[in-house]
Simulated assay, not measured.
Amino acid sequence: MPLPKKEQIYTYEDYLNWPDDQRIEIINGQIYLLTPPSTIHKRISREIFTSFAVYLRGKQCEVFSAPFGVRFASGNEKSDKEIKNVVEPDIVVVCDKSKLDDEGCKGAPDLIVEITSPSTGRKDKVEKFNLYEKHGVKEYWIVEPELKIVSVFTLQENNRYGRPEVYTEEGKIKVSIFEDLVIDLKDVFNY
């Protein structure tokens, strides 16, 4: 199991060739090792994923759960293998099917959900926040299991995330990218 070197710039090619027994993400050429999710993390992910999956059945958009690779190109790569941003969000909604291929999604999904853990909070709130905003992810959720809150960031007309809407376990989230989808957080945080 190789250890990432801080001075090295990693690419999608490294991601593809990384040993199967260790999951990684690459943000701005730097590797982040992924730890296995907790049981509570999996329960939250299951509930949110199920809500989206039931709603999207028979519709244009699709929902995917981790592990599902999302590649963000900067535009100066000569091939996909040179991409320096590859992440595995907990939940991804993609409405533009031309972005989907056998490896996952290339380009910005419409919605991303990240469920934090003590080891990922900073990465989710800073590195991934900036990455998703820069590449135009329309809606970004940060779920914090220990606090039972969800912060929802929506891309504004200036291509920046506005102030988040913050929901507690009694709240209901109106998903901005769909007209009539509401997620009841009582179901999500019922553990």
Rank of each mutant, 00 (worst) to 15 (best):
E7Q: 12
I9F: 10
Y12I: 11
P19Y: 09
D20K: 15
R23C: 07
I26D: 01
I27T: 07
N28Q: 12
I31G: 05
I31P: 03
I31K: 04
L34T: 09
T35G: 04
S38H: 02
K42R: 14
R43E: 12
I44P: 06
F49V: 10
T50F: 13
T50L: 14
S51Q: 15
F52N: 04
A53T: 07
V54N: 13
L56D: 00
L56K: 00
R57K: 14
K59T: 06
C61P: 00
C61D: 00
E62S: 12
S65V: 13
P67G: 03
F68N: 03
V70S: 00
V70T: 03
A73E: 13
E77H: 10
K78G: 15
K81G: 05
E82Q: 14
I83P: 00
N85S: 09
N85R: 07
V86C: 04
D90M: 00
I91K: 00
V94K: 00
K99H: 08
L100C: 11
L100R: 14
D101M: 13
D102F: 13
D102M: 14
E103Q: 15
E103M: 14
C105S: 12
G107T: 10
G107A: 06
P109N: 03
D110K: 11
L111N: 05
V113E: 05
E114C: 07
E114V: 07
I115K: 04
T116E: 04
S117V: 04
S119M: 07
D124V: 02
V126L: 08
E127T: 06
K128N: 02
Y132Q: 03
Y132R: 03
H135P: 10
G136W: 05
V137I: 11
K138Q: 12
K138M: 11
E139L: 10
E139D: 12
W141T: 09
W141K: 11
I142P: 01
E144V: 15
E144K: 15
E146Y: 11
K148W: 06
V150H: 05
V152R: 09
V152G: 06
V152S: 09
L155V: 10
L155I: 11
N158C: 05
R160T: 06
G162S: 01
R163T: 09
R163N: 08
P164H: 01
E165Y: 06
V166Y: 02
V166T: 14
E170K: 15
E170H: 13
G171L: 08
F178L: 08
I183D: 02
D184M: 03
D184F: 03
L185S: 02
L185Y: 03
D187E: 15
D187F: 08
V188M: 02
